[in-house]
Design a protein around this nucleic acid. Structure first.
Lengths: 236, 236
DNA sequence: GCAAAAGTGTTACGAATACACCCATGA
DNA sequence: TCATGGGTGTATTCGTAACACTTTTGC
């Protein structure tokens, strides 16, 4: 084995962001149109390069906020992608991140720049390079995450109604869910706090607004060290 | 945004391998002693650099096999690590992989070189750089994986007994499990095939050897697209 | 014959599912 | 008054957990 750094090639390190958005109705993905060759005019994820004074996480945040203007967005690393010829221009590995954002808080100041556009998650155009692989992995990861913990708080406004939360889950799973069972399970998680206000935008009766209780949430998360066990140990 | 590659810094890309091994009894981790500065004499994960003609996956395999002599080992990407000062020598990002290997098939031809040593998973020494973070993440990931799918086939010989499989799960979860419940659940997964041979090494009575049915396994895995849903959709 | 590990079955409990009606309101 | 979406309760099923004794055999 060879430990001398200088004998090894360096490599471009890119970041690509899979940006999920939810507008109280549909789950969407933010894409940009490339305005340079190769593949000019094709759609792509938002990306950029790692600079020397920033960590991977910081670079992903920077790229996300430089392209959308948004800060403090929930962002999580998905995976490193490193096929030799994944980028035809130069040897580049890319670390993909996914973000969840709430379009109702933010939609005004979003997207006009850089030819960015929101696409419904089930009507995506062809993407460059290995970006489709990234997206499908991110979708799987989001579903997985949603099945283990109450995701969705990042995708919703500070207060939200249960029908809205249900729509988010339905969008993530691309299916419909039973209202009563959904409510029971979400409420039994004990991380929601009911307010006494009602949201009347979408119905005449109005739906109660809930908010997310961060303390209860992290309490729940740490209960099993974050992971459900396949088996419960015997009581002894 | 700036798309010209040459304006961006390149960066060293390292790979680090978290190598889990199981010897029919304990779960272990393979570490090497650094024989160069900085941190000479300290323990570290096995690592190396990405070369220009190989993908990340290929590089991880190469490093694993160059240090252990083993090929075709189960290897999965864990995460990219990219803090600015994680490596004091030069700016380097590292993509960590974890491997599962079965020490009974392989132990003879392993480890003597490079000052490598197997450590019980609960008695690890201090590690260099961010390697401890990598290990604890890998442990969590292994547990998580084991809770969703019958892991362990990579860590066991071609045939194995149910008590051996149970010991593996107990090692992964660092707990003890009820024999009857364990057997029922594992067998109900329908991926094991009983042989008519018995393993008598560890008891007078002897335990039946089982083997893993790859076809049934991948069938099971693809059932829910790999992910359990939080909710089952209504029948309609 | 006994020590040591392998193997086996049943009950009890709790979580997930299926399912249908009433409520509040604005138009 | 009626159309629209919000809200609620229960019986059933199924999976998981708890729990103790018998079998085999080498010594």
């Amino acid at each position: 084995m060879d430990y001398s750094y200088s004998e090894h090639k360096q490599c471009y390190v890119a970041l690509d962001c899979i940006i999920f958005g939810f507008d109280r109705k549909d789950l969407k993905l933010l894409l940009i149109k490339r305005n340079f060759e190769p593949r000019k005019g094709d759609w792509s994820l938002m990306g950029g390069f790692l600079e020397s004074d920033e960590s991977l996480d910081e670079a992903a945040s920077r790229i996300l906020s430089s392209l959308t203007g948004l800060k403090d967005i929930y962002l999580e690393q998905l995976k490193g992608f490193g096929k030799v010829d994944r980028d035809p221009v130069a040897r580049t590995i890319s670390v993909a991140y996914y973000a969840l954002i709430n379009l109702n808080d933010h939609d005004k100041n979003l997207l006009p720049e850089f030819g960015a556009k929101w696409f419904p998650i089930d009507e995506l155009p062809n993407l460059i390079f290995d970006h489709e692989e990234m997206v499908s992995l991110a979708k799987a990861r989001l579903r997985h995450k949603a099945s283990n913990q109450p995701v969705g708080f990042e995708l919703l406004p500070d207060t939200f109604t249960l029908p809205e939360l249900q729509q988010l889950y339905e969008a993530i799973y691309e299916t419909s869910l039973d209202k009563r069972n959904f409510r029971r399970r979400i409420l039994s998680m004990n991380v929601l706090e009911k307010t006494d206000k009602k949201q009347k935008k979408y119905s005449k009766k109005g739906a109660y607004l809930y908010k997310f209780d961060e303390d209860k949430y992290s309490e729940q998360k740490n209960k099993n060290g974050g992971t459900k066990m396949m088996f419960k140990p015997p009581k002894v």
